[in-house]
Structures are given as structure tokens and as C-alpha cells.
């Protein structure tokens, strides 16, 4: 499975766009299919993607696709040479863990990443430790070990090009790829 962040972002954008349309009173076809795995339907459709819209301010679609829900956050950031999950992100990781626990057929890959400072193989190890920290917190919510794969790319796949703390802070991350 290679759904990258860009694709997730596009799906989220699409969802937002459709939400925008629904406020203009558009008849929402997705309403009936609430709960269907819409992003997958989009892939099968080959070219078009569908998504849920809010009904009276309530999201009835797949919670993974709710742009305002905690599961919309798919990137967890870390401090330098740290794998501790920052308090700002703990609830998000917990929500993902709870979602996995409630949906035992859903699987997830957690990608660990590091900034470019220091040696490359050490950064691979650091990225793995970050991915493991995320996984451990998810397991504590009742997710199964078999649902969560981890891989570390170390500093090999920076999200942001740049040579300062602004870039580095965005590259020290774990990405959640459903």
C-alpha cells in the first residue's frame, strides 16, 4: 500500500470541497452510503473519488475521512533526538488506536522519519523508535499488533527541503498511512 501524504491531503481537500458544495443545498448522493469506505470507492472508480458530507453538522461517513476529526491528522511531530510522543499529539494517536481497535480489519503503516542531522543509520534507528512509540500507544488502546506495520526511512525522505529548524522540525515525524 502506497498511499502517500499527498494523496491523503488531496482526499481531505476533496472532502472539504464536497462539504462546501453541500452547504449550497446540493442533493447529497453520499448520504445513503454513510459508513462506506469512500476513499477506496474512489480508487475503484478509476478517476473519480467520492466522499461523505456532513448531515446537519454530524459526520456519518467513515470517521477516517472526517476532515474535522482527530483521525484527519496523520502526521505526528517529534522533538530533536526524541521519540517521546509530545502531549499535543497524544490524543490524536489514541484516537487512531481506538479506531483500529473498533475496526479490526483496518490496517495501518506507521512510517518513522528523522531530520537530516547526524548519521544516517542512527537516524534510521531513531525513525523506527518514533514509529514504535506511536504503535505502542495505539496497542494500548486495544489495536492488534497485526494491524500496525512500521517502517523507518530515517532522514532519507524529508517532507520539507531546507536547512534550518523550520524544515527539520517538520521532518522529525511519524506518518500514519491507512
Amino acid at each position: 500500500m502506497k498511499i502517500n501524504l499527498a494523496r491523503s491531503a488531496i482526499l481531505i481537500l476533496l472532502a472539504l470541497t464536497l462539504v462546501g458544495c453541500s452547504t449550497f443545498g446540493a442533493k447529497d448522493e453520499q448520504g445513503d452510503g454513510a459508513g462506506a469506505p469512500v476513499s477506496e470507492a474512489g480508487q475503484e472508480g478509476g478517476g473519480s473519488a467520492t466522499s461523505a458530507a456532513r448531515e446537519g453538522g454530524v459526520w456519518r461517513g467513515n470517521p477516517l475521512d472526517n476532515p474535522d476529526g482527530p483521525l484527519a491528522t496523520r502526521v505526528i511531530y517529534f522533538d530533536y533526538d526524541e521519540s517521546r510522543i509530545h502531549p499535543d499529539y497524544q490524543q490524536i494517536v489514541i484516537s487512531h488506536g481506538q479506531y483500529l481497535a473498533a475496526n479490526p480489519r483496518v490496517t495501518l503503516t506507521v512510517e518513522g522519519h528523522a531530520d537530516e542531522r547526524g548519521s544516517r543509520e542512527y537516524n534510521i534507528a531513531l525513525g523506527e523508535r518514533r514509529a514504535q512509540a506511536v504503535k505502542t500507544l495505539m496497542l494500548a488502546q486495544g489495536a492488534a499488533d497485526s494491524q500496525i506495520a512500521t517502517v523507518s526511512y530515517g532522514e532519507e525522505r524529508p517532507l520539507v527541503a531546507g536547512f534550518d529548524e523550520a524544515a527539520w522540525s517538520q521532518n522529525r515525524r511519524a506518518e500514519l498511512l491507512y
Binding site: 543509520e121 534510521i124 534507528a125 523506527e128 523508535r129 514504535q132
Partner: peptide, 9 residues
């Protein structure tokens, strides 16, 4: 080589 198959590197 470095392996983490047994839990950590």
C-alpha cells in the same frame, strides 16, 4: 549489520 527483528536495533 543492524537488525531490529528482535525488538530494537
Amino acid at each position: 549489520l543492524t537488525l531490529s527483528k528482535d525488538g530494537n536495533p
